[in-house]
Write a protein that binds this DNA or RNA. Sequence first.
DNA 1: GGAAACCCATAGATATTTTATGGTTTTTCT
DNA 2: AGAAAAACCATAAAATATCTATGGGTTTCC
Lengths: 222, 222
Amino acid sequence: MNIIRILAVDDHEMTTLGYKFILEDHEFDGFKVHMDTAKTFAEAEQAIRQSASRLPYHILLLDIQLSGANGDRDKTGEDLGILARQLIPESRIVFMSSFSDNYRINSIMQTVNPEGYMVKSEIDQKSLQAMVETVLHTPPYYTQKALVAIRKKMSNKINLDDNDRKILYHLSIGTKTKDMVNHISLSLPSIENRKRHIKSLFGIEKQNDQALISEARARGFI
Amino acid sequence: MNIIRILAVDDHEMTTLGYKFILEDHEFDGFKVHMDTAKTFAEAEQAIRQSASRLPYHILLLDIQLSGANGDRDKTGEDLGILARQLIPESRIVFMSSFSDNYRINSIMQTVNPEGYMVKSEIDQKSLQAMVETVLHTPPYYTQKALVAIRKKMSNKINLDDNDRKILYHLSIGTKTKDMVNHISLSLPSIENRKRHIKSLFGIEKQNDQALISEARARGFI
DNA sequence: GGAAACCCATAGATATTTTATGGTTTTTCT
DNA sequence: AGAAAAACCATAAAATATCTATGGGTTTCC
């Protein structure tokens, strides 16, 4: 009987324990699951590094939010995913996220390109088991809410460049336009111009930033 | 008991009949299916137009390839989808395609943005029924091979503009570079420049068109 | 071997983007 | 309400990028 080795990372221990019980108890066709768990970025990193030199994990289940040990701006599950892709490229990576916000999903699809993405509210026993099967044999596996975000992005004809996206991102987190010059290597008038340009692409000429933000959100950019 | 009205369009009559038997016989939760079928673009268009003024179809199942009556370059299922979106915007559209080629899927996701996409080799009784349920209640529904193409596209950081994509498309169908000036409003040197540029984006500088085609295919552009 | 197509480089012409400047309107805060 | 801050807008010059014409070299294919 083959053993599928999984590492589950989540700062809520109950969550990883739930995964562990469900998957280790289940009778898969031709294999059994063995699961390790980690609660912090550091723990997870160590586990991944160790596994890299011996037996790489078959699957990594990563929460995106990892509350830091000391509370400050900490490494996320996304960083962990990027690291894992380098150290153990054969491993399948699945994100288990509380939110299905578009900006996050888009970013993760580009930086990590995971084999799976599950929105936590949609996870149950059956979907967990289906995820493992699918990810091992015919990835990818996405839950419904993740699919909705992905569809939104795919159907989008407008392609903004990096600077445009940065502008939208900063708008969304409340950065003032005049302060964006410190984060984006463009002059103030250029940023204003681009905002105008994006508004016209969105069909909301002559409206204010609030309208831009909500339209960008509706279109899945943020 | 509610009736869900579906129009299935496919030039192979056996295919639509298969859909009809499977879905009309199945006991859904709270509704029954009634299915009309059409074999050609013209038939389908008429059915859609008629339904628009009375009772719009709940779901359209569209094949992409519709062999024309007189054999020449004909309207496709994609055109039908675009038309249907205008005439009966509330209807759910699902493409039933023989191929999962990326260019097609990308194009359709942008022009029609269907509620579902099924690759025919993956269709069976169970998935058909699941598709109907999902598309009615929580779209979208994509089969596995469609998902693979979608994932490939999503994970792609590089964004090419319309002309770039046209160049790749024409390359893929064997158009000679010097003949592309007839299909793309650019001069020959510009097209050559763009090819070079795309190659550098793909990391295959100084290689020939064959390499470009296969790289573009690997990255899901064609 | 020769024609056709591909590949490459240069330079002038075009188009687009950025920037500086100066102003008006809206929002925000006291 | 009134002042300050920030958002908006327009113009023109500067900088950049893109396109095109031209003239080659190189590969591919009959």
